[in-house]
């Protein structure tokens, strides 16, 4: 992998969140406020895989989305190292955040957001083509990764909308790993996979760590977590929601 002028800082940090608060305000539910977490600090360095842990509903997925930039923190900073510079994901210009996601910050979501009509092979090759890799080479790498993840070759030319849950997840994993970004966020990447394919994903994660990627993941499967995580980051239970006083409703 070649990321041009990337010069990682000496401490190897790739992703950092500081003073992170998240409160959802539901304007159409009488302004109810759902606090998720407050004052959260997280730093992730190259070669680390941090497993987010805590009870269901404690905000693991919310934190992941704040780290990717599709949730806005109520206060605090999320910064990713992009081409040698720290980029604030929430105050940075949209085009810089898009560029950072292409080059520096990958995300394997739990579910595939299907794009109508786009064949599986193109979907997986797309992140590479967006980095300027030529069609042939991007397609070859996509084929290799789909093969490794045991996605049957007869499916490669079809859009994944009608695939089984496990097949869709493996397409999603392939799409998430192919560009080999220096930071990867993994939201339950093995949730609907059988034993054999779970092991393939574990190997992909270990390989990413070995090449110096910084990873943050949610792994409900304890075996997977033990195999891939270098440490855990525990989130406490979310505080109770607060309602506006009746005078304001």
């Amino acid at each position: 992998m070649n990321h041009g002028n990337t010069s990682a800082p000496a401490d190897g940090l790739r992703l950092r969140a500081s003073g992170l608060d998240k409160v959802f305000v539901l304007h159409h539910q009488h302004g109810v406020q759902l606090p998720v977490f407050a004052g959260l600090h997280l730093q992730v360095a190259a070669g680390e895989c941090v497993a987010l842990t805590g009870p269901s509903g404690c905000g693991k997925s919310t934190l992941m989305r704040c780290l990717y930039g599709n949730y806005a923190p109520s206060s605090g900073l999320v910064e990713v190292l992009h081409q040698g510079q720290w980029l604030d994901l929430h105050r940075g210009a949209a085009r810089q955040v898009i560029a950072a996601r292409r080059h520096s910050l990958g995300h394997v979501t739990q579910f595939l957001r299907a794009i109508p009509r786009v064949p599986t092979l193109d979907l997986v090759a797309e992140p590479l083509r967006r980095l300027g890799v030529d069609d042939t080479s991007a397609s070859e790498q996509a084929q290799a990764l789909l093969g490794r993840l045991n996605v049957p070759q007869r499916l490669w030319s079809l859009p994944p909308a009608t695939f089984s849950g496990g097949e869709q997840q493996r397409v999603n994993v392939a799409r998430g790993f192919i560009a080999a970004q220096p930071v990867l966020l993994l939201d339950e990447p093995t949730a609907s996979l059988d034993e054999r394919n779970r092991q393939v994903v574990v190997d992909l994660i270990l390989q990413a760590r070995a090449r110096g990627a910084a990873l943050v993941g949610i792994f409900h499967d304890a075996e997977v977590r033990q195999a891939v995580a270098t440490r855990t980051f525990e989130l406490g239970a979310a505080p109770a929601p607060t309602f506006r006083s009746p005078a304001h409703v």
Partner: peptide, 9 residues
């Protein structure tokens, strides 16, 4: 804002 930020949050 970013499309996914506006639609997801």
């Amino acid at each position: 804002g970013l499309t996914d930020r506006v639609l997801d949050d």
